[in-house]
Every structure is written in C-alpha cells, then in structure tokens.
C-alpha cells in the first residue's frame, strides 16, 4: 500500500468536531480510490490532540491512513496559517487527488493551496467520477446553477471542493484497520492577522433540518414570523427566509435560502409568500417535497412545487396550525 498514489481528504475540524462533510467525502473518496487504485488518506489540522476514538471513526468510515497535525494556533480559522502548515505536509509526488469540503473555510483555503501548487481546482462539485483515462471528472453547477460543467485537470494533484450534503455518509465498519499518525508542529505566527475573535456561533442551522418553513416578501413583519415558527415547531422544523427578508433586516442572514445563502435539501419545504426567483430555487429545489402558498397563481414557485396552494398565507398558516397541531 505504501507505494500506492493517494487520494487525500483535507478535513475541517471546527466547533470541536470533525465536520460532517468529511464523512461524506470518505464515502465518495473510498469509491474513487478503489476505482483508481489509490490509497485514501485524511489530513486534519487541529489545536489539540483529537481523541483517538474520533480519529478511529475516520478509519471506520473508509480511510486507510489519518494524519493529525497539531498546533495551538489551529484553534481559530486562519487560512494563511493552515495553508502554510498543510503545504509543508503535502508530498505532492504521490498525490493524485485532493478533496476538501466546500464549506466557507474549505472554499477559502483550497484556492490558495491550489495556487501555491500551481494545480487545478474545481469549486463546489456535486459529482465526481473516475473517467476512462483514470483522471478525475469533476462535475459542478455553474452560471448560477443553470448548467452542469464537466471539468478535468491536466495537473496533479487534481483538486476539488465538494458540496456539503451532496453525498451520503460513508457506512461505518468497525472492523476496518488503518494507520493513525499524530505530529505536533511549530509554526511561525501570521504577523498580518493582529486579532481574531469568535463573535457568535451560527445559532441557526437550517441545512440540517428535516422540515424547513420558509417565508418571503409575502410575510410583512418580524412579528408575523412567529406564526411560521409555530408551524415549524409542529414538525420539529426551522424557519428560513428569502433574501428580501434578510435585506429588510427582518431575519438574520444565516436563515437565508438560496444561491447567496444556504442550500437546503429537507424532506419538506414550505414556501410562504416566496415568488420563486431562480436564485431562491437554487437553494431549495432539491427538497423532497415542496409545498408553496402564494396569492399569485402565476408565481414561478408553483412550477417547482409538489403542492401549489393559491391563497393568503395569513389565512392559511393559522388554519394549518389549528389542523396540524396535536390536540
């Protein structure tokens, strides 16, 4: 195995966990590695020794090898430092493919790594395949999600960032064996970054909810969103919004669905008073079931919905709450 070329996953360790996208990358990565006869490695940079138990999970989910590099400065997201440290660890001779989760941090870190190695990088892929010639076919939406581009690189390593929640998690197999190495490293401090401070957690996480109750311009006031919250509570769901609502300052931007917001793929998506602009559809069109309520029967959202209900959300939501609430 030692002489096999590598598929490397650079993992994000943030908020005291290995980001869940890593386990999705392990699923896809394992399949690609087997097809192209590569070994599958994971590289993590973190501030403390991550418990072996957690690192073992990476092996159980498909990795052949896990490398942890430790430095106290990895406790905050500094792309410049991470980039320097990671580049030191990459033995590019053996690297065939590098995959990174397309989180904000991944999309900010990966381009610098690729530029430093003068190698190609494809952003935000939604599918990856090994082509006939053994190279990596990188498939991604472009033109505001209107097309799917099939991209190849003529340099090595071939690099891609991969969208979160695009692939399913790898299956866990506790009998899998692999190698774990841990190394404490020293780093020169980044003199340009004078201060970093976490100011808030992103309290709202709409991407992982099974039910999303979204409101757009049809919802008039901040107060009115309580009504949506009440409906969401019935389904254990979350409230989300279109960009117009964020622009008006009614709701925080973490709850925005769409091209310049979050992408969601819940089991159930309610769209109340949302017209269905392409930039909004880009963030929710893959939801399993879509229910749209709009006063305008010609609203584009109706074409994207499974159930299109013509009517006033101010009448329909209270009625739904009444009928759906467990009595």
């Amino acid at each position: 195995m030692a002489d096999k070329n590598k598929l490397l996953i650079i993992a994000e360790y943030s908020q005291n966990r290995i980001h869940p996208v890593v386990f999705e990358l392990l699923n896809k990565g394992r399949k690609l590695a087997d097809k192209a006869d590569l070994s599958l490695s994971v590289l993590i940079a973190a501030a403390d020794n991550i418990e072996n138990k957690e690192l073992n999970e990476l092996i159980y989910h498909g990795a052949d090898e896990v490398q942890l590099i430790v430095n106290k400065n990895f406790s905050y997201p500094d792309e410049y430092l991470f980039k320097k440290a990671i580049l030191n660890f990459l033995d590019s001779k053996q690297l065939e493919i590098i995959l990174i989760g397309a989180t904000h941090f991944g999309r900010s870190l990966a381009p610098g790594l690729a530029a430093a190695m003068k190698t190609g990088l494809t952003a935000d892929c939604t599918e990856l395949e090994i082509a006939e010639d053994g190279s990596l076919l990188q498939i991604r939406p472009a033109f505001s999600e209107n097309i799917l581009a099939h991209i190849k690189s003529n340099t090595r390593p071939q690099m891609a960032t991969v969208r979160y929640q695009e692939f399913t998690r790898a299956v866990r197999d506790e009998s899998r064996k692999g190698k774990i190495s841990i190394e404490k490293i020293t780093l020169k401090e980044n003199k340009s970054l004078k201060k970093v401070e976490k100011i808030s957690d992103q309290k709202i996480n709409i991407t992982e909810a099974e039910v999303v109750v979204a409101g757009g311009s049809g919802v008039k006031t901040r107060e009115d969103f309580k009504m949506l919250q009440e409906l969401a509570d019935i389904f254990n769901g979350v409230v989300a919004v279109s960009r117009d609502i964020v622009d008006k300052g009614l709701m925080p931007r973490e709850s925005q669905v769409g091209y310049s917001g979050q992408r969601v793929k819940p089991k159930l998506y309610f769209a109340f008073g949302i017209s269905g602009a392409p930039q909004h559809l880009a963030g929710m069109k893959e939801s399993e079931t879509i229910i749209a309520v709009n006063t305008d029967p010609s609203a584009p959202i109706f074409k994207a919905a499974d159930y299109a209900i013509e009517g006033d959300l101010y009448e329909i939501i209270p009625e739904m709450i009444k009928k759906y609430k467990k009595s």
């Binding site: 097309i147 069109k285 029967p297 209900i309 013509e310």
Partner: peptide
C-alpha cells in the same frame, strides 16, 4: 490547468404539481 470537457443543462426537476385554487 482545468478545462471544461462538456456542459450539460440539467433536466429541470419535473414535479407533478397538484394545484389547489
């Protein structure tokens, strides 16, 4: 280093919409 090998316009996810007036 990268080039677009081809471009596919994704099939619009066709949903059978049930409309309530």
């Amino acid at each position: 280093p990268t080039w677009v090998e081809n471009i596919v316009v994704p099939q619009k996810i066709e949903r059978e919409t049930k409309v309530y007036n």
